[in-house]
């Protein structure tokens, strides 16, 4: 289990453009951090950097697990539950096939049916993804996030395309994950529904 994530003097750089400079923050187990900022402020890039997909321009991101420190980008990625902009669905795969593939890819199999129930997709289990609405696609992405059973959730606009019921579901899942000692960092325009603290840096706003 991860105790905390520390970012120290981070520079987020995309291509030759510097988006964020000298950013430091800490997220402890059970906490949710919401990232706010205008479009293009570097929220997505920061999430990608934390996931280890984007190399840091300067500074470091470290995960603390017991006495071990994990800062190698690819190692960090193995702790990340990712919910990106895109839903990563294949049109010809059914909902259950799609989820089963990712469970196997993440080396965790078994409870796909329960997960689909949890996000309200039981009825669509045998439906090819091409017939899903945007909200249903998002719910499937959420089921996949749960299936990964990773401690550090990185969520890019987790409320996008969801109705009120869906948004409540996301908030509940985040609270549940934090309750189990997980960490959440989410780029969002809306409140995560948890007690937040604000931290301003450059044109990006960080709330903890």
């Amino acid at each position: 289990m991860i105790q905390s994530l520390t970012a120290e003097k981070l520079t987020v750089q995309r291509g030759s453009r510097r988006l964020v400079e000298n950013l430091s923050f800490t997220v402890k187990a059970g906490q949710a951090l919401s990232l706010e900022g205008a479009n293009g402020a570097g929220k997505t890039s920061l999430l990608r950097l934390i996931a280890g997909l984007l190399p840091a321009g300067a500074g470091s991101v470290t995960l603390h697990e017991g006495d071990t420190e994990i800062s190698e980008p690819e190692e960090r990625g193995k702790y990340v539950g990712w919910l990106g902009h895109h839903d990563a669905l294949k049109a010809s795969f059914t909902v259950s096939e799609q989820l089963a593939f990712f469970s196997k890819l993440y080396g965790r199999e078994g409870d796909e049916i329960a997960l689909l129930g949890q996000v309200g997709l039981s009825r669509q289990a045998e439906l090819p993804c091409r017939y899903l609405s945007a909200g249903q696609r998002r719910r499937l992405a959420l089921a996949r996030l749960l299936a990964s059973r990773r401690p550090l959730w990185l969520l890019d606009e987790p409320f996008a395309a969801l109705d009120t019921v869906g948004k409540a579901l996301v908030a509940r899942l985040i609270a549940l994950h934090c309750g189990e000692g997980g960490l959440v960092i989410a780029a969002t325009h809306e409140s995560l529904g948890l007690s937040n603290e604000t931290l301003r840096l450059g044109n990006a706003v960080l709330k903890l």
Binding site: R123, Q124, E126, L127, Y131, L132, S133, A134, Q136
Partner: peptide
């Protein structure tokens, strides 16, 4: 079948 399964 698809409409019964709640296709959008």
């Amino acid at each position: 079948l698809r409409s019964l399964m709640g296709a959008a």
